[in-house]
Nucleic acid binder design. Structure first.
Lengths: 355, 355
DNA sequence: ATTTTGTGCACAATCGTTTGTTCTAATTTA
DNA sequence: TAAATTAGAACAAACGATTGTGCACAAAAT
């Protein structure tokens, strides 16, 4: 079993003190006046012994680990795994490693993970929080650990964030549905009391309002971004007396579950029911009925967040802009039926609202 | 800015040495005869000061970090992100954290990541290697760092692994295609010279052989598990004079790319061309033509690998079984056309081969 | 009353780095 | 020639935790 070589090992071989070795290896030779000769000796020995510093010792001494925490509610959700890929890649390029934590959409697990990451002395934290409470995040804030939120943020606690403009996204999608003649639209929402969900619901409602369409609160259903939720709620929706003509699914997973329910009920999209889903995915266009989706810029979100975080770490200047909202785009495919007798004259064209 | 409390801080408050604190907090009070009274004092102070040990210092001293490395070729590939989820979850339950590295299917990045993880003193490594070369993995082996391979392994270097039985999976799928009357079948392969690809190609070929079907080497195309590869190769395949009647896609990403090419060419599955894909995904059944797939047990693979690795770490007994192969299942849907005049009499029924 | 045993804890080394300070010669300067 | 620089490197402390050993005192045994 080969052991890692340490500074002391090199010191023994070159017969010089460890401090000198450290200085040479860290490029501080001139400042400490190490002779060219000793430098070469040390450099050669280090190469020969294949030296590579112990990051634990280094981190302990330097109070800096070049490690970032990334906490996600569900790494198997492609929306988040795409972000994780970008975060890891960008961080790696800048010399940082990522400790990955999956909170399973559970605030307790999330809080534990945060403590664990603090104990491991991460330099900064990127987190897509569960988002219903913020208290446990204040801990990292109080410890002065830079933090950037992704996807979900807190209107009442000032932490930098990068997210999609969920309000506009939902507004646009819902407006489109209405323009296509739908007036009874259900929204299968994600986790309640999280910023994306709040914003989407708001957009959903405002679209109705803009078009002067009466709006039925009972059509906002569900309470999770997961597939199960989509399945359950769609099952229930189609059994209703006054069933909606269109369903807006609050996430890619929700729409998958909804599709499953529809398949079981032998209902076709869009003939029997129309659908729009949040989160475009590579497969969305290849579905039985190519799905109309609200596409988010996952990669850009991840890259921006990482860049902001590392800036926060490496300079000490505060991050002034409260947060960044990236636009979504509505990708129209075939999952929305155009109801022929639709004659929407409203003031509510999506574009006029958005611009 | 709140600082972390250390043993020394507690020592100051309780007026007792740090060693005593450490012993009490690690439950070694009886062995070192710490009085009940001091124990309570220390426990209370620790709670009051919200003590939590510095894992860097602990790891340095203990030569044990409770950290695992997980290297994957592409965390955004749902096959791997599913595995990552399970690995993280299972590791977390057993007290380990995960450092995530994405190698981007690049052996150099992979080798760098391995060195980086060694420097960070991980206790063990789970890796889905690029798989074309093994030399850089010998480094961790030589350092006696437990390691478990996922998905791809090395026949000529004895490292424990957990993977699907790709040979049987491909054999079964190809046999099914042949039984449906297809004789000109293309295989869009993944990365060459990797165990999954080798095994799948072997199964693909053996199925032909079993059925006594002449086999055209030019029908094995491509060289990557990515979407781009599927797109390019399908584009080329359908332009051939003697184009195949069925295409076997070597991964979920490949089939997505292939689907894109087919859409552009306005070709329908299975009417114009039949398809089978490796890797079942939640969306597979909802595709325009529900896709017949070879399903792998991703979660089980991840959990098994993690369990094996942590066993390896916590006991010192060697891992005897060379590797574990998990069965795949062929999920038949509608993407394979049954050619009517097919009268396969062969000895080659899939089941008879598999059993 | 003296040795033995036991109790309760402190001391100090160690893990591998980094860095402020000091020390020793050799070389310059006055 | 004596004092002052300067070059080149060693010493030692520190980061925070763990652990073998030693020490002081009290109680028990002889």
């Amino acid at each position: 079993m080969k052991k890692s070589t340490t500074l002391k090992n090199i010191a023994n071989q070159v017969d010089v003190s460890v401090s000198t070795i450290s200085r040479v290896l860290n490029g501080k030779s001139k400042h400490y006046r190490i002779s060219e000769e000793t430098q070469q000796l040390i450099l050669n020995a280090a190469k020969e012994l294949n030296y590579s510093p112990n990051q634990l010792a280094r981190g302990l001494r330097l109070k800096r680990t070049n490690t970032l925490g990334y906490i996600t509610p569900d790494i198997s959700n492609p929306f988040f795994s795409n972000i994780a890929k970008v975060v890891e890649k960008y961080a790696r390029k800048l010399g940082y490693s990522i400790i990955l934590c999956d909170s399973e959409e559970n605030t307790d697990i999330e809080a534990n993970s945060i403590q664990l990451l603090i104990d491991r002395k991460i330099d900064g934290l990127i987190i897509s929080p569960v988002g219903q409470t913020v208290d446990h995040l204040k801990e990292t804030y109080n410890r002065n650990i830079p933090i950037v939120l992704i996807d979900r943020f807190f209107p009442d606690f000032d932490l930098p964030y990068v997210a999609s403009d969920n309000y506009k996204g939902a507004l646009e999608a819902t407006s489109y549905l209405i323009e296509c003649g739908h007036t009874r639209i259900a929204y299968i929402q994600g986790l309640k009391n999280t910023s994306p969900n709040n914003e989407r619901v708001k957009g959903f409602k405002d679209a109705h309002r803009n078009f002067g369409i009466e709006f039925d609160d009972s059509l906002i259903v569900g309470n999770s971004f997961g597939e199960e939720n989509g399945y359950i709620e769609m099952k229930l929706l189609v059994k209703r007396n006054n069933k909606p003509s269109a369903v807006f699914a609050g996430s890619n997973l929700i729409s998958l579950g909804a599709l499953k329910a529809l398949a079981e009920e032998n209902l076709k999209v869009p003939d029997d029911i129309s659908m729009i889903s949040f989160d475009d995915q590579p497969y969305s266009r290849f579905l039985a009925t190519p799905m109309t989706t609200v596409s988010q810029q996952g990669s850009q979100i991840g890259q921006l967040a990482t860049k902001i975080l590392i800036d926060l770490i490496e300079t000490n200047k505060q991050f002034e802009p409260k947060g960044i909202l990236l636009p979504t785009t509505l990708i129209k495919r075939n999952s929305v039926r155009i109801i022929e007798d639709a004659e929407i004259t409203g003031n509510g064209k999506a574009n006029s609202i958005l611009s």
